[in-house]
Computed example of a mutant assay.
Amino acid sequence: MQPFTYNANPARILFGAGRLSELGAELQRLGAKRALIITTPQQRATGAALMAQLGELAGAVFDGATMHTPTDVTAVALAALQAQRCDALVAIGGGSTIGLAKALALRTGLPQIAIPTTYAGSEVTPILGETADGVKKTQRSSSLLPQVVIYDVDQTLSLPSAMSASSGLNAMAHAVEALYARDANPIISLMAEEGIAALARSLPVVVKQPGNAGARSDAQYGAWLCGTCLGAVGMALHHKLCHVLGGSFDLPHAETHAIVLPHAIAYNAAVAPEPMARLGRALGGTKAPWTHMHAMLGSLGLPTALRDIGMPEHGLQRALDLVLSDSYWNPRPMEAEPLRQLLRHAYEGAAPTLD
């Protein structure tokens, strides 16, 4: 066996139906007295319900979280946090709310509790992507990690089918890139394969039967594993592309990841035969992994083309320039013409190719 290094990120995980009821006890365990509850505008009612549940442990609700963690939104949230004298952060939602909590924790050092309602995986990663002036920048720091994550399947039952599917494929992308990461290791590869398999078998059921708690729990389990992979090893081309596309053109995060993933897999396939074998095994199909993933978009009712989620055609060249302007490790070197073709195919919704 090849030598490897494995770093485990600390986290307290509460997994199971109904475990949101333990939120107050977890805040007390952290020594918190006034929590800032973070939601999106669409989740105001959820924030209000948590306020009622926590009683005097709740300081205020900030319901302005949005995609890609814009720094101007973080500034507004920070002012609200300070005005209400809150000493802990509770994020309930997907990557937008959890990203904002991380940004606030980075600036204040306050403890966080994350309650994911999607399959994004951000809750178990020491990674933050922030957007300013149309550019998204990513950083890693152990101070970004939530101290507690509550995976309560009941909080995912109302997640719409399309959002469930795109969020699940976004999670899969973390594990796919972990398989061929520069610092890949046997432990993370095992988790990646298991996480991909859990999502591959559960997402079709979730889409057809959104109220199926068993499938939802399986998907949440897979998302946790995939997010843990993202938090433990570095990423590659797929994440670079999606950060550029999302941060520069304000594309929806999960859908962007879902559309780009098959093309990024195909780009790296020739130089990563063992990871491709693992991926194929996890997907459980007979097709090539990139073909299988592209077909999953259609079978799950998701868009296959970047143009269908708001990508302007004139932005393709700018996206390519941004990807090439910043050194970013990938198992296959970043080559302008193949990447131009990749972006064109993803824009049009064409099948991924190995060129």
Rank of each mutant, 00 (worst) to 15 (best):
F4K: 02
F4S: 02
Y6V: 09
N7D: 11
A11E: 05
R12V: 11
G18N: 07
E22D: 13
L23S: 10
L27I: 09
R29A: 15
R29M: 06
R29Q: 13
L30W: 06
G31M: 07
R34Q: 10
Q43P: 00
R44C: 14
T46I: 11
T46K: 10
A52S: 10
Q53M: 15
Q53I: 06
L54G: 10
L57S: 00
L57N: 01
A60F: 05
A60T: 10
D63H: 14
P70E: 05
D72T: 13
L78F: 08
Q82S: 06
A83Y: 03
Q84P: 00
L89T: 14
G99I: 09
L106P: 00
T108V: 03
L110H: 09
Q112R: 11
Q112T: 06
I115A: 02
A120Y: 03
G121N: 11
G121T: 11
S122G: 11
S122Y: 05
V124E: 12
T125Y: 01
I127L: 15
A132G: 00
K136P: 09
K136T: 07
K136L: 03
S142A: 14
Q147N: 08
I150Y: 13
D154A: 15
Q155L: 08
T156V: 12
L157V: 15
A162V: 09
S167G: 13
A173M: 05
H174M: 04
D183G: 02
A184W: 01
I187T: 10
I187A: 07
I188P: 01
S189L: 14
L190Y: 12
L199H: 03
V206M: 06
K208M: 05
P210N: 06
N212V: 09
A213L: 10
G214L: 12
A219K: 11
G222F: 03
A223M: 09
C229T: 08
L230Y: 14
L230T: 05
V233N: 04
M235F: 01
H238W: 01
H238V: 01
K240E: 00
G246R: 00
S248Q: 08
S248I: 01
L251M: 11
P252H: 08
I259N: 01
L261W: 01
P262A: 04
H263P: 11
A266D: 02
A266S: 02
Y267E: 01
V271A: 15
V271H: 11
P275E: 10
R278V: 01
G284C: 06
G285C: 08
G285I: 08
K287W: 02
P289N: 07
P289L: 04
M296N: 10
M296L: 15
G298Q: 13
G301W: 07
G301T: 05
P303M: 08
T304Q: 13
A305W: 02
R307C: 07
I309C: 02
I309H: 08
M311V: 02
M311A: 10
H314M: 07
L320A: 04
D321G: 07
L322Q: 14
L322A: 12
V323N: 00
D326T: 15
S327A: 15
P331V: 06
A336W: 05
G349K: 03
G349S: 04
A350F: 03
P352S: 06
T353Y: 00
L354V: 13
D355E: 15
